[in-house]
């Protein structure tokens, strides 16, 4: 299983979780096997400075890296829909802890998956993009 965590630069297990998914600088991708961390790699987020649709482009990047789970702070409705399309699980409301701590909490079953962003997808949702911290409340 591959877990992607949006991270503050330079990324890696000791980096902090970046609450933004679409516009974080780097993703730390942690490969887990039998409940243990097997491999860690850092991927530049090419979508960070996209004019629009950064969330979708970031999810595309993670699909291409074969990611199954994303742990982060917040996402917009477009990114959420993109994750659903790709069958990626999203764990939201995680911030102010390191990537390693976040992954451990997830593996211990202490983080719950997050539902649809409150204002939901649909026509005209674009105005919500990139705003709205703490839609679901903090988990950690």
């Amino acid at each position: 299983m591959k877990i992607a965590v949006p991270s503050t630069p330079p990324g890696g297990l000791k980096a902090l979780v970046d609450p933004r998914v679409g516009r974080c600088q780097v993703f730390t991708i942690v490969e887990v096997e039998n409940g243990k961390i097997k491999d860690v790699k850092v991927v530049q987020n090419t979508a960070a400075y996209a004019f629009g649709g950064a969330g979708i482009q970031a999810v595309q990047l993670l699909i291409n890296h074969g990611v199954n789970v994303i742990i982060g702070g917040n996402i917009g409705p477009n990114a959420y829909m993109a994750m659903q399309q790709a069958g990626i699980q999203f764990i939201g409301g995680v911030m102010n802890i390191t990537v390693e701590e976040a992954v451990k909490l997830y593996l211990e079953g202490k983080l719950r998956p997050t539902g649809m962003p409150p204002w939901g997808p649909g026509p005209g949702m674009g105005r919500g993009m990139g705003r709205g911290y703490g839609r679901w409340g903090r988990q950690f």
Binding site: I56, I63, M81, Q85, G126
Partner: peptide
């Protein structure tokens, strides 16, 4: 997907690309 400047297209793991109409 690469050509889309608005990032309105997503290539999921299966099937054709998905359009995000509002973008």
């Amino acid at each position: 997907v690469n050509a889309c400047n608005s990032n309105a297209l997503l290539l999921p793991r299966e099937g054709p690309p998905t359009l995000f109409e509002n973008l």
